[in-house]
Amino acid sequence: MSESVSVRCPACRREHIYAAPAYPCECGAPVAPPLDPHGTATAVAHRAWDDEWVGVRCTECGREGEWPRPELGCPCGTVLLVPVARSAADDAAQPQAPAARRVFQPITIRTAHDAVTAAAVYLRWLGYRDIRRAGQRPTSGVGISADGLLAQVDPTVQPASLRDVECLWLTAMTESVPCVYFTLSGYSPAARARADTLGVPLFVLDLTGTPQPVNTLADDLDATGAA
């Protein structure tokens, strides 16, 4: 919960103590807009969609989202917009240092479905959004789509082949997005060499559900997250 601030109604001059409500971030942490204790509340004269929201960054995972702008109803009938600290509103448009990502929480793999879930959770941790089942079925395993990415998860006991990597890359090219491959059983030497040529990050999912980078491209993705 955010700190309480004193809010004075400009219409009737009543003074109220107000704390902004918290909403859950995608990472599960509660997020509340930081209030400006030195600001002045203003009465809502008319409603505009852009004025209803304020940019707030989660202190746990660094995600920035749009949250309802804090407001308070005074007994006199006036609806007050509560002032928000500069860091949440004006500074949202200013360059900021990237916040550190929270520690990745893996999903233990016991089934093929767990492997797909673990890969999806990892992609979300990297910063990809709108993760869903891909429209096209891959040559093996399960395809996952996200905003700006296509991934393949292969939970079989056979190492991924050169053809598997090439088919994923070709499908991604038709959708004009990069791609990434996850497998439980590793990759053939030819597949690894071809992935480096095509620019495909390769990961092996260990049984704890933690993706282990196999090539330099995967190391870079793990370090930087979604672009």
Rank of each mutant, 00 (worst) to 15 (best):
Q96I: 06
T156V: 15
V79D: 03
V116P: 01
L150N: 03
P33C: 06
L149Y: 05
R133C: 04
G135K: 11
V7A: 01
Q96V: 09
N215I: 11
D50V: 11
A151V: 14
G65K: 12
H46N: 05
P98D: 15
H46G: 09
P211H: 12
R163C: 08
V177R: 08
H113R: 10
D206C: 06
L202E: 03
I109N: 00
C25N: 09
L221E: 00
A172G: 08
V79E: 12
S2K: 03
A99L: 11
T216H: 07
L168I: 13
V82R: 00
E175N: 07
D219F: 13
Y128P: 01
L123D: 01
Y187V: 07
G39S: 02
V177G: 01
W67M: 01
A226H: 08
V204S: 10
A48Q: 07
E175S: 15
V5Q: 00
D51E: 08
Y181M: 09
G28A: 13
G39P: 00
P178L: 06
V44E: 04
G55Q: 15
A45C: 06
Y122I: 04
S188K: 07
G209H: 00
A93W: 15
L149R: 01
C12H: 06
L170N: 13
W53K: 12
P98A: 05
P70D: 09
L221I: 02
L162E: 13
A112G: 14
C74S: 04
R13W: 06
A92L: 07
V56F: 04
L126M: 11
A20M: 05
D50K: 12
Y18V: 15
L150D: 01
T216V: 08
V82Q: 04
C76R: 10
G209T: 01
A223I: 15
A20G: 02
R192F: 05
A119C: 09
G209Y: 03
V180H: 01
P138F: 11
L202S: 06
A48P: 02
P178V: 04
V54H: 02
A97P: 04
V177A: 04
A119T: 03
T59L: 12
S185Y: 10
V7E: 00
Q158P: 02
R14V: 08
R8K: 13
L80G: 00
V214T: 07
P33R: 01
F104A: 08
D154V: 12
Q152R: 08
Q136H: 06
V121F: 08
T42I: 10
A146Q: 03
A11C: 07
